[in-house]
């Protein structure tokens, strides 16, 4: 699970062009949106594409993202439980 969390941090930084942010800057419990990494609604859509493209997870209801993308911990747990690739 720790490897997956590290992988997610690296992918998020790359996909969302988080310049000057290192994986070590993101704690597993940091809020990804709002006061945390400060991501926005377009970033949320990009994360949904990331789940589909890299892990074969299709979110049919974007509202699900609110819980899934709370933190690296919640995202990793969801990916681990639902990934098809």
């Amino acid at each position: 699970m720790e490897a997956l969390k590290q992988e997610l941090k690296e992918k998020i930084i790359a996909v969302l062009n988080l310049e000057d942010v290192q994986p070590s800057d993101i704690s597993n419990t940091d809020a990804l949106f709002g006061d945390g990494l400060g991501l926005d609604s377009i970033d949320a859509l990009e994360l949904i594409v990331l789940l589909d493209k890299d892990y074969g997870i299709k979110l049919t209801d974007p509202k699900e993202g609110k819980n899934i993308f709370q933190s690296i911990d919640t995202m990793a747990a969801y990916v681990e439980a639902n990934r098809t690739k």
Partner: peptide
């Protein structure tokens, strides 16, 4: 086929 929302905007 994975259109990028961040590029599309």
């Amino acid at each position: 086929y994975f259109p990028s929302p961040a590029v599309f905007v």
